[in-house]
């Protein structure tokens, strides 16, 4: 437990340094802007979306992410797309996952990059026009995109 606490503190400190050194980093406001642009005039509600990320990330270059939406994936209740947004990455929008009529379940996994410790948000766009969101926190000890070659 003590080691974990130390790693967490070190990660937070490293994250702060990386953020200061990197002018290309987006801000949570930009991420909010991206979400607003996506939702348009609709309302965004919390829930139905489960985002799985490891709570402590040693290497931000490849972070496993799984997103699941509570939906029957029937003709009436269907997820059209899931937007993955990382507020402190240089570009907040990480990926847009779109599901066709033949997609079995409203779930997908991928590997993302995280530039800093942050909250990752997934916004689900449903076929009925509603938007739902879920989020997960990740503590990154070694961030992506800061190293040279």
């Amino acid at each position: 437990m003590r080691r974990r606490e130390f790693l967490a503190a070190a990660g937070a400190a490293a994250g702060t340094l990386a953020l200061r050194a990197d002018p290309a980093s987006a801000t949570p406001e930009q991420a909010q802007e991206a979400i607003r642009a996506l939702v348009g005039g609709g309302t965004l509600r919390k829930g139905r979306v489960k985002l799985d990320l490891p709570p402590l990330v040693e290497n931000g270059n490849a972070v496993p992410l799984t997103v699941t939406v509570d939906s029957a994936m029937s003709a009436m209740d269907r997820v059209r797309a899931i937007h993955v947004i990382a507020e402190k990455n240089p570009q907040p929008v990480v990926a847009v996952l779109r599901f066709g009529p033949r997609a079995g379940r409203a779930a997908a996994s991928t590997r993302i990059r995280l530039a800093d410790s942050q909250t990752v948000v997934a916004v689900a766009e449903m076929a009925d026009g509603s938007f739902w969101s879920g989020s997960a926190e990740a503590l990154v000890t070694m961030s992506a995109c800061v190293e040279g070659v």
Partner: peptide, 25 residues
Amino acid sequence: EEVFRAEIHPGIAANPYFAFTALAA
């Protein structure tokens, strides 16, 4: 017929990996 599509940005890790499901109709 489209099953799954991912619009990819630089925030996706090297050697892009996607896991998803399809209905075997």
